[in-house]
């Protein structure tokens, strides 16, 4: 059986690539510390020696559109091109190509459908910065095959927070039942408080530092029940109009397990958002 060797949850700040590669007067004052934190975070994945990455993210109206919008979608393809024209234009992100792990995609789809998740699939999926950012931050050599899993945190009606946690728990079970002797890491990215296209955007900090503090506590302590008791689709409007991306962190809490404290926690208070980095090393994951 496969072994779940790391669970990694992170914000996906599309400006990291440009900030970290800028030089001279173009380099922002916060870049050096940001790079230091990201490289330390990267080590937590490297140390787990994964063979395959399951990558949870959310398409930002790039390939998925309102005329045919899935709630949860699994990519099943041999390759995934990455990044779109408007991400090159606005963030300076590079185009890249990731290899796909199609047999694991097929396993997640079959087992997920049988477990009651009506997963959509795509045989030709171009991944956006919700998945390419963690490639850049966590595995810049881009040498591992991936399985992309997209969630809808963007186009209401959305699934409720509990459904994200349930899918996270199911993803863990499905990865651990994959009959391949491979080391799998599950990586998911989302947001803490975030405002886009509203009056609280691009402030000196994230729009709701108090929400961010609580969110980091929920995630780092594995307090799934406490988080579910406070977080609803309605409540997520209050910290910022794009804060529903926090539900991807809730999915990752489901993967990590109830009450499971993160083994690595770091944050970085930037303009516009609080960056947050978490890694768990499951101790019961190996059955090979």
């Amino acid at each position: 059986m496969a072994e779940l060797v790391a669970v990694v949850a992170s914000t996906h700040h599309p400006f990291y690539y440009r900030a970290s590669t800028a030089t001279g007067e173009e380099r922002p004052p916060f870049a050096d510390e940001w790079v230091r934190k990201v490289e330390a975070f990267r080590q937590t994945l490297t140390r787990a020696r994964p063979d395959v990455l399951v990558m949870v993210g959310s398409d930002h109206f790039h390939q998925l559109w309102l005329d045919n919008m899935p709630q949860f979608l699994v990519g099943k393809a041999p390759c995934y091109d990455g990044n779109f024209f408007n991400e090159e234009r606005e963030f300076g992100l590079p185009r890249l190509v990731c290899a796909g792990q199609e047999d694991l995609s097929a396993h997640l789809l079959r087992e997920g459908l049988d477990a009651g998740f009506d997963l959509a699939f795509s045989n030709e999926l171009r991944i956006d910065h919700s998945i390419t950012c963690p490639i850049i931050t966590l595995r810049p050599q881009n040498d591992l095959p991936i399985v992309p899993v997209y969630t809808n945190i963007f186009a209401p009606p959305l699934p409720r927070p509990k459904r994200f946690v349930q899918l996270g728990r199911a993803i863990r079970e499905m990865v651990e039942s994959w009959p391949a002797r491979r080391r799998v890491a599950v990586i998911g990215t989302g947001h803490l408080s975030l405002e886009l296209g509203g009056p609280r955007q691009f402030g000196p900090h994230g729009p709701d530092p108090e929400f961010d503090r609580k969110a980091v506590e929920w995630i780092s302590s594995g307090d799934v029940e406490g988080c579910l008791a406070e977080v609803t689709l309605d409540s997520l409007h209050l910290p910022g109009n794009a804060t529903h991306g926090f539900m991807d962190f809730m999915l990752m809490m489901g993967v990590a397990g109830d009450g499971r404290k993160a083994d690595y926690v770091d944050t970085y208070d930037l303009f516009h958002t609080m960056e947050a980095y978490f890694t768990w090393y499951p101790d019961g994951g190996g059955r090979s």
Binding site: F61, E90, L196, Q201, F202, G203, N241
Partner: peptide, 30 residues
């Protein structure tokens, strides 16, 4: 959808402002 509006208007008008100037003006106008 605020993300769609923001993205397109940044594409059109960010070039007329100092870095992040358009984004902060956008917030002020809302």
């Amino acid at each position: 959808h605020p993300f769609l509006t923001l993205t397109l208007f940044i594409a059109m008008f960010e070039r007329d402002h100092p870095p992040l100037g358009f984004q902060t003006e956008y917030a002020r106008r809302l």
